[in-house]
Simulated scan of single mutants.
Amino acid sequence: MQPSVSPRNKKPWRAIIAATATIGAVGVALGLGTQLISILMAARGFSSSVIGYSGTVGGVATIIAAVFTAPIAKKIGVARSILTMMAVGCASFLGFYYFDSIVIWFVLRFTLHFAITVMFVLSEFWVNSSAPPAKRGTILAIYAITLGLGFTIGPTLLAYVGSQGFAPFGTACFLIAIAALPIIVAWNLSPQFKDSDHVAFFHYIFAVPSSTMAVLVYGAIQMGALTLITPFSLNLGYSESEAAKFMSVLALGNVLLLIPIGMISDFVTDRRYPLTGCAIIGLSGTLLIPLIAQTKWLLTLDLFVLGGVSAGLYTIGLAQLGSRLKGFELAAANSAFIFCYGIGMLVGPTAIGKAMDIFPPFGFSDTMATFFGLYIILVVTRVVLKLIRS
């Protein structure tokens, strides 16, 4: 199938800046908003289990939205879809302020995360399809960093505006409204699809497994580590403040190592090799944890590297999609990519938590090592089979 996206995007940098600036602003709003919702649920007396179920609803919404994103974009267009979901996101935020029913809150959590996912997939697709091939890995790394910084800044902003009254909800909506401006400016640069375009969504889960399984592993390790690194650190004898620092180090590795990893991937024709490299480093790093767990500076350094290479799986996997696919095929593949990310987010914390109960305390690192190891086996097997066939 030939690329079906219209050649309207003659100014790729304007499109890249628009989509990246948008996801940054949305990231700030959502980082603020999701933290705010958890705080308010706790303040209103909801149990940790109910708050956890609320997060699960968000994960389910992510998976469902990934299935429908490409058809929505085909029906009403990429830019219009993003703006529509911005409106849905704003309405969801306001709903949390105006309604008290837990049932309505669960519905709002679903609509909020559905809107987030559609915006996420389409802005990602827009950047990926607009990026010059020689710089795709670097540009996607900058995009991922911008999103990550947005999620980091959001909770910090919440500390200033507070969690009471209309102010935090109004702030989140204001930020999303600002994020709409670059989309409107770059409206004519957004990708367009033909009416005849049709690609089965689930096909791309298996068509580019080195990419989709990379993001599944990333989702599992990222969510599992963020959820369980604190109890893991406490089990090792570290304090709560030290556990918080370990979490910060993981996030810092996500940010600081992505650009060099992205630049390296731009010099490689077959991105399965840097993907495998990231997984091998991740496997080595997780296997080292039991040996260095009581040496704080070594553990800190190890977690910093693990944060970077696990995020590298996401960025390089996404760049590989952009190098192999175009037009509506890329949009459908992007949806499959985020679908697998959502599956990883659901599987990771459960698998790692269960392993920590059965094999304390290093079930934490052993399970992550298993994820990395299985991915290495997948990619190496595919590369070997390709060499045999050729």
Score class of each variant (00 low, 15 high):
V5N: 08
S6N: 08
S6K: 09
K10E: 12
W13S: 09
W13H: 11
R14C: 08
I16V: 14
A19Y: 00
T20C: 03
T22Y: 03
A25L: 15
A25E: 06
G27E: 01
V28G: 04
L30R: 10
L32R: 03
T34G: 02
S47N: 09
S47H: 03
S47V: 11
S48C: 04
S49G: 06
I51Q: 05
G52R: 03
G52Y: 12
G55H: 13
I63D: 06
I64T: 14
F68N: 08
T69A: 13
A70G: 02
P71L: 11
I76F: 02
V78R: 06
I82E: 02
T84R: 05
T84I: 13
M85C: 13
M86T: 10
G89T: 15
G95T: 10
Y98V: 12
I102M: 13
I104N: 03
R109W: 02
L112S: 10
F114G: 01
V118D: 08
V118M: 07
V118F: 03
L122G: 06
V127I: 15
A131S: 12
I142W: 15
A144M: 15
L147A: 13
G148E: 07
G150V: 11
A159R: 08
Y160K: 08
G162A: 00
S163I: 05
A177K: 11
A180T: 15
A180L: 00
I183C: 11
I183L: 12
V199R: 04
V199W: 00
F202E: 02
I205Q: 04
I205D: 02
F206E: 00
S210N: 14
S211W: 09
S211C: 09
M213L: 13
V217D: 09
A220D: 11
S239C: 03
A244C: 08
V249W: 13
V249G: 12
V249T: 15
V255P: 07
L256N: 09
L257H: 03
L258V: 03
I259M: 13
M263K: 13
S265D: 01
P274R: 06
A279L: 02
L283P: 10
L287H: 07
I289L: 10
I292T: 04
T295H: 14
L299G: 08
T300N: 00
T300W: 11
L303F: 13
G307D: 09
G308R: 01
S310Q: 10
G312E: 06
L313C: 12
G317K: 04
L321G: 01
L325T: 08
A331K: 01
A332K: 05
S335H: 11
S335W: 11
F339W: 07
F339V: 02
F339H: 05
T350P: 03
A351R: 10
A355M: 13
F362Q: 05
S365R: 01
Y375P: 02
I376F: 07
V380I: 14
V380N: 00
T381E: 05
R382P: 01
V384W: 11
I388S: 04
